[in-house]
């Protein structure tokens, strides 16, 4: 019965693992609801902000803000948003993979790359592969605050103003639905232009009336723009993390279940074989007497 005992302990340990993954699944499901609500609530604001900024990029202001000037791109800055914790399927790795592909193209063109990272996983990834990390922010928790991100964002924007990077992009997982997360890279500064439809409406040469004055309003508006987009990226990534974890943990629980079924079958066979052997031993023993 030596084999049977081993199998039994194996089943026991898989059952324990299953308990853990099931608990994690439920926790992730509960957190996912909140994270999704948070994301959906702030989405309209970020979308409107993007639209207004798109208009602004088409305006012809008498005073140019540094964020509105396009320079020759010698190096690109990335703000990379990842999760703090693992066990969420391929979420972070998918993002990093698409990022690495982009970075390779940039390097082949002889352009430099600088990074600001948000979340433990990105920090770990970049310390492994190397790369110039300007700033990092970790342990944002389930309800991230803009204040926690301001420092990181500022480092990147300062690098832009100083000319160290000529373009800032943000990389994060966009939430499509619970099953699908989309690794996304977006341009933050210089301001991306509005889409085709809006552009047609604004083809003529025009500028805003600024109250009280252009510099002040632009400063305020662009500050809000970057903050809101980075915040939105972080909450989207948070919602992605929870749903990816839920799905991953559900798959793990299911796998553990089928593994247990298989092992139980093997165990029963072994037990049966042992009994049969015992009987045949007794019978042959009796026959000998």
């Amino acid at each position: 019965m030596a084999g049977a005992k081993e199998i039994r302990t194996q089943i026991g340990s898989i059952k324990n693992t299953q308990k853990i993954t099931r608990a994690m699944e439920m926790v992730a499901a509960a957190k996912m609801r909140k994270a999704q609500d948070r994301m959906l609530a702030s989405r309209p604001y970020a979308e409107k902000m993007r639209q207004v900024i798109g208009h602004l990029a088409l305006a012809h202001p008498e005073q140019k803000h540094p964020f509105m000037e396009r320079r020759e791109v010698k190096s690109v800055g990335y703000i990379i948003v990842s999760s703090d914790r693992g066990l969420c399927g391929g979420l972070n790795n998918n993002l990093f993979r698409s990022l690495v592909k982009e970075v390779k193209v940039l390097q082949e063109q002889g352009r430099g790359v600088r990074c600001c990272v948000v979340g433990n996983k990105a920090v770990a990834f970049f310390s492994r592969v190397g790369g110039q990390v300007l700033a990092q922010a970790t342990h944002l928790g389930d309800a991230p605050h803009i204040e926690d991100l301001v420092g990181t964002v500022k480092v990147m924007l300062d690098a832009y103003t100083d000319g160290e990077v000529d373009e800032v992009r943000i990389a994060y997982n966009r939430f499509v639905n619970t099953m699908t997360q989309d690794p996304t890279v977006e341009q933050l500064v210089p301001l991306p232009e509005a889409d085709e439809e809006e552009r047609n409406k604004l083809k003529h040469h025009w500028d805003y009336i600024y109250e009280p004055d252009a510099r002040e309003v632009l400063e305020d508006l662009l500050g809000r723009y970057v903050e809101s987009l980075v915040y939105q990226a972080v909450v989207e990534n948070g919602a992605c993390e929870q749903s990816a974890r839920m799905v991953a943990m559900k798959a793990a629980s299911d796998n553990a279940g089928s593994l247990i079924d298989e092992l139980e079958l093997v165990y029963n066979k072994a037990r049966q074989a042992a009994i049969t052997q015992e009987i045949s031993e007794i019978v042959s023993g009796a026959a000998a007497v």
Partner: peptide, 19 residues
């Protein structure tokens, strides 16, 4: 309520941004 005083905006107003 704009910083420079209350604004009333009708359709086809000129482009404007304000705090």
């Amino acid at each position: 309520p704009a910083v420079m005083g209350e604004l009333g905006i009708a359709p086809r107003h000129a482009p404007l941004v304000t705090r």
